[in-house]
Design a protein around this nucleic acid. Structure first.
Lengths: 244, 244
DNA sequence: GATGGCTATAAAATCGATTATTTGCCAGAT
DNA sequence: ATCTGGCAAATAATCGATTTTATAGCCATC
């Protein structure tokens, strides 16, 4: 059904198998996924409402662009929202939450960050564990609206995180960072926990902002000739064998 | 095109012409709006991603339910997000922003709250002016992500606000409330401005929470016979001549 | 008399074709 | 030689029909 297509395309976008700015040709996607045009169109519409895809009337869909300005805005906003969630979670702390958080951390700490044979791409499994940890961290927050907003921002960040991996030459002890945040949260030290979380998020953004990739691949500084620069359908659409 | 249908259905939901929980039959909507099935389906999908419509697999779409718990959560979340926006707007204050805010307030203050002949429904025009004022208040915030989140929550609140009007027997000086918030913002008193804004939002929620309507019409206490109660296609769909 | 299965009806999901729009290209004119 | 106008190919948007699925009513059996 259309839900499957929706998730498949979203996963491709989040994992950067479909590059930012790439043109999304409905017919090509339909043939590749072996479904009808309408189904793809519906999935693209939903993605558009979630902000992962942009649609221009009568001109089709493309993957939402990335830019340094967007990453900066996204990161600062995310810090504020995640902090709100984390403070509430700490205030409503209970044993079940602590247990889940410890379990999520343990799973994350023992999952290899990259695929054994592919040193450049993030492992899908690690991404899942990472998401589960951060979700466990804030899941004590009872507000479903706040968690929903957080989820939107987390999803957007996922694209940048995947983009940043080939650039991440700095060595960084992610396990220690996550452990420090968790320890502060369990110790009910909201100030310290939110400060560590903010630094954690800022670090990721900073690494990407100093990397050259974002400067030459970005959105639209002047706005014209976008298709020319990235050559989306030629390179992105053909190089990725999809369905994975 | 599908964009028009999307906006039409969204306006019907926000104005409560389509009641919360009402079943949205695709065929009926398609015939009424004189478009195809696929177009309606796509519009409903986008609404679903925005949270105004819920979809159950193989069981169609219905208008997102309302409940006292959801209103409480929505209000507290909205207070936090709007406060973040307002603080940033005040920090980045400039003359252009002040001018726009004053203009928006003046328009709002001189727009009648209800239709002259219909004392029970909110005037569409007043709703537009009210939205414009609140948008002007926070538009000094440069973060497009934060403003986007705020927009989502504002839209959700709109439904409750329209629902609350037939109940609003308490007399309330909305013009004075808005003026007080504006004055504090222009005076760069962020603490006072956010406090007044919070009280403003809480007041609206409080009025609705004490009213009986939400208690008997709410989401799904037990979950059955929901279509029976509101008879959506019979009353709501037929009484409004669409296109408005 | 009640319960369980079966059938009929209605609605939702999917599909392939048709129509309209845009874009790139070629030819002709200045 | 270059610019402009039209033409053709590609692609997005819309539509109506078909297929699958859920629900409700009915009959048979226990």
């Amino acid at each position: 059904m259309t839900e499957t297509i929706f998730r498949t395309i979203r996963a491709d976008i989040l994992a950067c198998r479909l590059l930012p700015g790439a043109k999304l040709k409905i017919a090509a996607l339909a043939q590749r996924l072996d479904v009808s045009l309408g189904a793809v169109r519906e999935a693209l519409s939903r993605l558009s409402a979630e902000g992962l895809v942009v649609s221009e009337t009568q001109r089709g869909f493309r993957v939402a662009p990335v830019s340094a300005a967007d990453l900066t805005d996204l990161t600062t906003t995310r810090i504020e929202i995640e902090s709100l969630c984390l403070r509430r979670a700490i205030a409503a702390q209970d044993v079940a939450w602590e247990a889940e958080l410890l379990a999520a951390f343990h799973r994350l700490a023992h999952t290899p960050e990259r695929e054994p044979n592919d040193a450049v791409r993030l492992a899908d499994n690690w991404s899942r564990m990472h998401e589960a940890f951060h979700l466990a961290l804030v899941s004590g927050c009872k507000s479903s609206w706040l968690l929903r907003l957080r989820g939107t921002l987390y999803m957007q960040s996922e694209r940048y995180r995947r983009l940043s991996i080939p650039v991440a030459r700095v060595d960084r002890d992610l396990v220690a960072e996550h452990r420090a945040i968790m320890d502060a949260a369990i110790a009910r030290d909201a100030e310290r926990a939110t400060a560590l979380l903010a630094e954690h998020l800022l670090m990721t953004a900073r690494i990407l902002l100093t990397a050259p990739e974002l400067k030459e691949d970005p959105d639209s500084p002047s706005g014209e000739e976008r298709g020319r620069r990235v050559r989306p359908q030629g390179s992105a659409a053909e190089k990725e064998p999809a369905s994975a």
